[in-house]
Design a protein around this nucleic acid. Structure first.
Lengths: 141, 141
DNA sequence: CTTGACCTTCCAGTTACTGGAAACCCCATC
DNA sequence: GATGGGGTTTCCAGTAACTGGAAGGTCAAG
């Protein structure tokens, strides 16, 4: 692969694992800068662009929001970044993940318990329905 | 509280913990049937409506989608329901929750590991950025 | 010259709400 | 009677991060 061969969006999609649509969406939403165009008005990408998109894809796969990804990208590009800024972002995300996991886990445990107590036969009696009929648990917000 | 006193939406909101907006939204999206109106065209609700909305709120708080809530509601109303139908819904939801928890947990562990290895000082070296720079982990889909 | 595989833009739909605007209703007060 | 306050109504828009589809341009092969 030549160092400066220009790639089209489909090739970049194949290289990054991101759908072309998503790459265009990232451009449109300002997460990456607008791609150069060739004579046909087709977007063209360099290897550096592929690297940037891989960074984005990886950050997204770790659950960072696009907003966070934008900040991570600018830290990534900043050679003088302070690692504490990166770490702060990561820790905030970690806390968010923990919150979401705890919420889901609580639901999961309740559902598992109810499902386990439900006969699951042709009769109408059902602890699941009965539970839903009762007062909802306090949901913290 | 009289048995058949008609409540206005704000009172129902207070009784169910659901915002008025959300109650209107549930009506509009067909999850509950359209409320009767009084002379002012204000929505009025019975105690039975409050009970239905509590059911909905509780199911939502357990993470069921509105679509699922619709099905649960019709099972709730069906005196001849088979508990296995309820259970099937619950088990599908459980599987979904487990999938989502596992996904989040994997992210969480990676982030926690990276954050722990990051010095978090004023220097630019950062394992978090380095990880994101590398190839993204295969994400199953 | 047509076909097929790309690419382009634009619009709509997804989920479950939430916020805000403009207007109406009712009651209490000045 | 005017005003104010608190409810209510409808409608429109925005959220997050895409995804699907339509209509049309470009290019190489057959």
């Amino acid at each position: 692969m030549q160092p400066d061969c220009e790639l089209m969006i489909g090739e970049v999609a194949a290289l990054t694992g991101l759908p072309s649509k998503t790459i265009r969406y990232y451009e449109e939403s300002g997460i990456i800068e607008s791609a150069r165009r060739n004579d046909n008005r087709y977007r063209t990408y360099s290897q550096a662009d592929v690297q940037t998109l891989r960074f984005v894809a990886h950050a997204r796969s770790l659950g960072f929001s696009l907003k966070d990804v934008g900040e991570l990208l600018s830290l990534y590009r900043d050679r003088k970044r302070a690692s504490k800024d990166v770490r702060r972002l990561a820790l905030a995300h970690l806390a968010d993940l923990d919150r979401r996991i705890a919420d889901l886990q609580a639901m999961r445990n309740t559902i598992a318990d109810l499902a386990q107590r439900c006969h699951g036969d042709d009769r109408p009696e059902c602890p699941i329905i009965e539970e839903l009929e009762g007062a909802p648990n306090r949901r913290k917000r």
